[in-house]
Nucleic acid binder design. Structure first.
Length: 810
RNA sequence: GGGCGAGUGGCGGAAUUGGUAGACGCGCUAGACUCAAAAUCUGGUUCUCGCAAGAGAGUGAGGGUUCAAGUCCCUCCUCGCCCACCA
């Protein structure tokens, strides 16, 4: 009898799969397709970690499950290689990022292969390879043509350590998402993608996505659509007009002052008399501070009076204009009408500076509440008195519109996507700046704009990438007029590269175009996208690009991903995050090498708990899974023992257990409940061990074991193919038909019915599966313990839930 | 402050439509095998009382709907995550 030895069988089967090219696929209209992918990894020098092991165990289990179901399954892999770690390493050591990246990829690939993941490696892509970024650049030029890529001078988040600008999504609580340093505001000319033009389209499609609610909510909040009105307040002196944005135009009669953001273009000009000096000082101070610093201490409001007044267009009264940093320059119009009676922030400000508070909505305030923001009938609002505030919103906007003092307006929190990076290791922005023609896109036949090799990768903090110093490369000619011109020296945000790779997998070697629509429309959109990160950034950008491609007629669908499987993190044994400094990192390759093998690792990470939850690694836990695989192994080795006895008494029980397990495992995998699917397999194995003692007929036993192997294969593919061979089956498990079950067979002839008296369990009886309800009720009343509780009383009602229980109500 | 989740044994968790709470695993424990240990196998394991049969309690707290509630409704507490002066 052989012992279970994963380190012997796993490399053997990995080689068989590779030699037989079993995972290489092509368009095949005769089969249902399934396209599954994890979010492609950044191949760091540290190699694969438990998060990768978890993600790709989910991906591969789905891939193998649907393959066994007869689907044509695309399970590709690629590398998200542009980015700061490789460049920082290059700056430190002088090694070209491309070289380090190639080494890291080789290492990652080897590690993934040792996991036994069923990847079609002929489709491997690498975002920093010119054959890939040629098409990233091509997409850029298409967006540029459509006015969706544009340049503008603006205040931007700037990371002083990484010496680059950052997108809003890359600033976390005022700190750089990469290095953690405090970010600053800096005014620069930058490239943007006009994602705001797609705000409504992206919002509309969210509802229909089969994605976790928390991700959908996060995206909805990020887009942050709010409907309101722009209202014009004329200055009391002079021609100028201040436009404010409000979602509560119904409260305009209560607007007792205006507040401008320090960045507002009129803020300084409004200074009058003695107020000029403190106003200027306040504005200069506030603008220097980052937005985050300003918003960090939310408690205490600060601000200064400008000395100027505006006219409330509803009341005609003079209202003072203040400047305060609680109003943000970048949202709405950068100016608000303050309605202190119905807004907490305005109230706090009014209270501190002694400004008037006018109630205009009547409502029941709870004890201790000074203001209300609920709905109610208007008061102190002229001709609108008595109207419900919710109705007044439209009426008042219409009234203002008529007098040309305002209009309905929708605003979004989302800003355009800033994509230029003053760094070397990224896809060059394919633009040439010409003195006569301005920014000109590089024509398709001149793509890719190859990232040149240079000596010194370090940015010098002058707001330009190291590319600016590659004079030979920078100097070129204008595609329009042929005169000398200069290349754009910024590179693209890495998120641009990852916004279309899911399409490239469908047609990865195409040199004529980014993809063949026929192939993409066959494979895409993804059926399953697996990851545990990028709730808004990547997952919003990839949606944005796909919406654009749909508008351009390049793809037949708007949404790139049907089902998003968003998984949790695997923490260290003590429940804290794994980190090198704490020394509590589990290396999945070590786990394999310790002798547990890839099958145990894969099965264990899926058994730990529901995929969406965080879980703590347990060395005892993986040992338990190894024990389980060992039991499966041994069960097959003892095949002859069980068959020799050739008894048939247990055949029916084995059959029932088998069909039950097929149903449970199939259902559970379909609903992503891998932990319970594995638990079901354990139950089945325990049951077979018990039944094995008495033996069975050979064909029943053989089917029981073959089914076990098939159901186990998505989780533990190596042991499955090995045992499949031992059982004398042909070929690989993945080429066999997934087992079927028969609902009729699952119900045993005799079933156990629970008996309750007044809802409390008092006993059990066994009845035939098709027993007559009246008969079951009578039997229930005869049960000794039940009779004791019923006593002399006559049951008022007897409820029978077929196949489950009887409840006797007294 | 806003939004979204979640609270079940010693631990991770299960209970898919309101129908026997605690599947499965870990741990613990008793036994078998062994000179012994490991490995393996078999049994037990929510708490309290009881030799047992069984009884009582029990899914964060309190109330409600129902023959029946972990599941539905209301009030509250705690924790986690995301966003956060967005007018």
């Amino acid at each position: 009898m052989q012992r279970y030895n994963p380190s012997a069988i796993e490399p053997k089967w990995q080689k068989v799969w590779e030699d037989q090219k079993v995972n290489e696929v092509d368009v095949d209209e005769t089969k249902p397709k399934t396209y599954v992918s994890g979010m492609f990894p950044y191949p760091s020098g540290a190699g694969m970690h438990t998060g990768h092991a978890f993600s790709y165990s989910i991906v591969d289990t789905l891939a193998r499950f649907y393959r066994q179901q007869g689907h044509n399954v695309l399970n590709p892999m690629g590398w998200d290689t542009f980015g700061l770690p490789a460049e920082n390493y290059a700056i430190k050591t002088g090694t070209a990022p491309a070289k380090v990246t190639a080494e890291n990829i080789a290492n990652f690939k080897k590690q993934f292969k040792r996991m036994g993941v069923s990847i079609d490696w002929t489709r491997e892509i690498n975002t920093s390879d010119p054959s890939y970024y040629k098409w990233t650049q091509w997409v850029f030029t298409k967006l540029f043509e459509r006015g969706l890529a544009y340049q503008k001078e603006s205040l931007q988040w700037w990371c002083p350590v990484d010496k680059t600008v950052l997108a809003n999504e890359q600033v976390e609580g005022g700190h750089c998402w990469r290095c953690g340093s405090l970010v600053e505001k800096k005014s620069m000319k930058q490239w943007f993608f006009k994602i705001t033009e797609y705000a409504d389209s992206l919002l509309e499609e969210i509802d229909g996505l089969d994605w976790p609610q928390k991700i959908k909510t996060a995206q909805t909040n990020w887009i942050g659509k709010s409907q309101g009105a722009e209202i014009e307040f004329a200055l009391a002196s002079g021609e100028e007009v201040i436009t404010v944005f409000s979602t509560r135009p119904d409260t305009i009669f209560g607007a007792s002052f205006l507040v401008l953001a320090p960045e507002h273009p009129l803020a300084k000009q409004l200074g009058a008399g003695d107020f000029v000096e403190p106003l200027t000082r306040y504005i200069d101070d506030a603008v220097k501070k980052s937005e985050i610093e300003r918003t960090n201490d939310t408690k205490e409001k600060t601000g200064v009076f400008t000395g100027s007044y505006a006219i409330n267009p509803a009341t005609g009264e003079k209202v003072p204009i203040w400047v305060a940093d609680y109003v943000l320059g970048g949202y709405g119009t950068g100016a608000i009408m303050a309605v202190p009676a119905h807004d907490e922030r305005d109230f706090a400000f009014a209270e501190k500076f002694g400004l008037p508070v006018v109630e205009v909505v009547e409502s029941d305030k709870n004890d201790g509440e000074l203001i209300s923001h609920g709905e109610g009938p208007l008061i102190n609002s002229g001709q609108f008195d008595g109207m419900m505030s919710s109705d007044a919103r439209e009426e008042i906007v219409a009234w203002l519109e008529q007098r040309q003092l305002g209009r309905a307006k929708t605003t979004y929190k989302m800003r355009d996507w800033l994509i230029s990076r003053q760094r070397y290791w990224g896809a060059p922005i394919p633009i040439i700046h010409c003195a006569d023609h301005g920014a000109v896109a590089v024509p398709e036949d001149q793509l890719p704009v190859i990232l040149p090799e240079i000596e010194d990768y370090a940015p010098k903090g002058d707001g330009k990438s190291a590319l600016a110093r590659a004079e030979d490369w920078v100097n070129t000619t204008c595609p329009e007029c042929g005169k000398p011109a200069r290349r754009e020296t910024d590179t693209m945000d890495g998120y641009a590269c990852s916004s279309w790779y899911l399409l490239r997998y469908a047609d990865p070697q195409n040199t004529e175009r980014a993809w063949d629509p026929a192939k993409v429309n066959y494979w895409n959109p993804l059926d399953f996208y697996v990851g545990g990160d990028h709730a808004v950034a990547h997952l919003l950008y990839v949606r944005f690009w796909t919406h654009v491609f749909n508008d351009m007629g390049l793809v037949d669908f708007k949404e790139p991903v049907k089902k998003l499987v968003y998984h949790g993190y695997i923490n260290a044994e003590d429940g804290t995050k794994m980190s090198k400094s704490k020394g509590n990192v589990i290396d999945p390759l070590d786990v394999i090498d310790q002798g547990y093998g890839a099958d145990a690792l894969r099965t264990y990470v899926l058994f730990m708990g529901p995929v969406e939850l965080d879980a703590a690694w347990s060395s005892k836990g993986i040992a338990g899974i190894y024990r389980f695989l060992n039991r499966v192994w041994t069960l097959v080795q003892e095949y002859d023992d069980a068959v020799e006895k050739n008894a048939t008494d247990n055949d029916q029980a084995v059959l029932v257990a088998r069909h039950k397990t097929v149903r449970k495992v199939t259902d559970d995998i379909r609903r992503m409940s891998f932990n319970t699917a594995i638990a079901g397999l354990m139950e089945y194995v325990n049951e077979l061990y018990k039944l094995k003692v008495d033996g069975f007929s050979e064909d029943v036993w053989r089917d029981a074991l073959a089914t076990l192997v098939q159901l186990l294969a998505p989780f533990a593919p190596h042991i499955a193919d090995e045992l499949w061979l031992q059982l004398g089956r042909d070929g690989l498990v993945q080429h066999a038909q997934w087992p079927h079950w028969d609902d009729e067979l699952i119900v045993e002839d005799t079933i156990t019915i629970a008996i309750q008296v007044q809802g409390k369990l008092r006993g059990e009886i066994s009845v035939a599966k098709d027993a007559d309800p009246e008969e079951v009720k009578a039997l229930a009343l005869q049960h000794d313990n039940v009779a004791r509780f019923v006593g002399d009383k006559k049951p008022a009602k007897i409820i029978y839930v077929p196949g489950r229980l009887v409840n006797i109500v007294l």
